[in-house]
């Protein structure tokens, strides 16, 4: 992002919104499983950014948005159940036997439960990577932690998920 541009400029602000609003929504949803709160967090973060547009450079805007969104519910709300859908492509595969589909659904239910049992930080980091394709470095930047800390979360998340699903 070019720092000569000003966040107060309508076009820059709009670009930032269209680039980040969806992921901020997801990020908050992964943590708390609450769509309303995730919507509110997006609004709150961007309103705050607009109010402080003169102070926040475009380069800093992204981490500013995530920080505001994250702090909004920090220690305030208890996480609800995170409900995630599966992409349509698995349903389109029509070659599967009924047994396979049953097995598959059973697995999905287990995965769903295991994900919900994960700590908020691990769940949001894991899903930002798996669903939104965010690189570890990017997640580290917006969470304000080291890449290694993100790797640790990913590792623990995957390990815990497998243990829960395999029933260990």
């Amino acid at each position: 992002m070019d720092d000569h541009q000003n966040v107060c400029k309508e076009s820059t602000y709009s670009e930032l919104f269209h680039a980040h609003s969806k992921t901020i929504f997801n990020y908050i949803y992964y943590k708390f499983g609450n769509k309303e709160k995730a919507h509110d967090a997006v609004q709150e973060a961007f309103v705050k950014l607009w109010e402080n547009c003169a102070k926040v450079t475009p380069g800093k805007a992204k981490s500013y948005l995530y920080t505001v969104a994250n702090n909004l519910y920090l220690n305030v709300i208890k996480a609800d159940k995170v409900r995630l859908k599966y992409a349509d492509k698995t349903l389109k595969t029509i070659h599967e036997t009924p047994e396979f589909i049953m097995e598959e659904n059973e697995f999905k239910a287990k995965l769903d439960k295991a994900l919900n049992d994960l700590p908020e930080n691990q769940r949001s980091t894991f899903l930002l990577n798996r669903i939104d394709g965010k690189k570890y470095a990017e997640i580290a930047e917006l969470e304000g932690v080291s890449i290694k800390a993100i790797e640790k979360r990913m590792h623990l998340a995957l390990k815990t998920l497998r243990e829960k699903i395999d029933g260990i």
Binding site: F25, Y86, A87, F126, R130, I131, L161, R162
Partner: peptide, 11 residues
């Protein structure tokens, strides 16, 4: 898990 989690979608 890795493959299945990639097919998940947020609301």
């Amino acid at each position: 898990i890795a493959n299945a989690s990639q097919d998940l979608r947020a609301p």
